[in-house]
Write a protein that binds this DNA or RNA. Structure first.
Length: 215
DNA sequence: CAGTCTCA
DNA sequence: TTGC
């Protein structure tokens, strides 16, 4: 995949690439992620202050990983339970970023969220990064998610649409800070993951990069 | 500088 | 890096 594929603008700045990864590519990516999860096991994130658990389980790849616990939301260089550095971002995940992100620097964080059939994710923004110049790239693997997308303000109207296995979504430009979440999964919609559920990868730039000079 | 929780 |  060298040329940039065509996508659908769900709203300005949010591009949906349905079925961008064919089933063999999805399987290969899942295999890579299994290797990463063997080094950095999934853990249960918690809400700041209350400690209420989120229903997803998560791990990370890359130089920095996103964690959530009583202390807050933040990026850290190592796994909160093992203390080991996050494993590298898998090659085919990096390749997707290179094709789609239009960004001169590689991603620093690859958050891997696992949704069981009952997991959900409330509406939120990805805003814990020190730069919003780079887009956020999201990859869906496994069961279809009923995804919810809003605007920049929490009270903006929202829309819902489905994200199936192999779909890629890019949040950039004016939509980089769009609210989004997952209402639910559609059970039985995929057999990619033997035990069901859904993996979502979120690729992000965390620290600023030097943009090419304009003259 | 309160949040991607949840339940009232 | 959470207490305020």
């Amino acid at each position: 995949m060298t040329a940039k594929p065509q996508g659908l603008a769900v709203r300005p700045g949010v591009i949906h690439y349905p079925g961008l990864l064919d089933p063999p590519a999805q399987r290969a990516m899942v295999d890579e992620l299994r290797g990463a999860a063997a080094v950095a096991p999934f853990f249960t994130p918690r809400m700041p202050r209350t400690g209420a658990p989120l229903s997803v389980r998560m791990t990370n790849c890359g130089a920095l990983g996103w964690v959530a616990d009583e202390a807050g939301y933040r990026y850290v260089p190592s796994h909160p339970e093992t203390g080991l550095p996050w494993p590298p971002i898998p090659g085919r995940v990096l390749a997707l970023w290179e094709t789609l992100a239009d960004c001169p620097a590689p991603p620093e964080a690859c958050l891997v969220n696992f949704y069981s059939s009952a997991a959900r994710m409330g509406l939120h923004q990805d805003r814990d990064e020190a730069t919003f110049d780079a887009p956020v790239l999201s990859v869906s693997l496994g069961e279809t998610a009923v995804f919810r997308l809003g605007g920049i303000s929490r009270r903006d109207p929202t829309r819902s649409f489905r994200l199936a296995s192999g779909d890629v979504l890019v949040f950039g430009g004016e939509a980089r800070l769009a609210f989004h979440g997952v209402d639910r999964l559609i059970p039985g919609s995929s057999t990619l993951l033997e035990k069901g559920g859904r993996l979502n990868l979120t690729l992000r730039r965390v620290t600023p990069f030097q943009r090419p000079a304009s003259t």
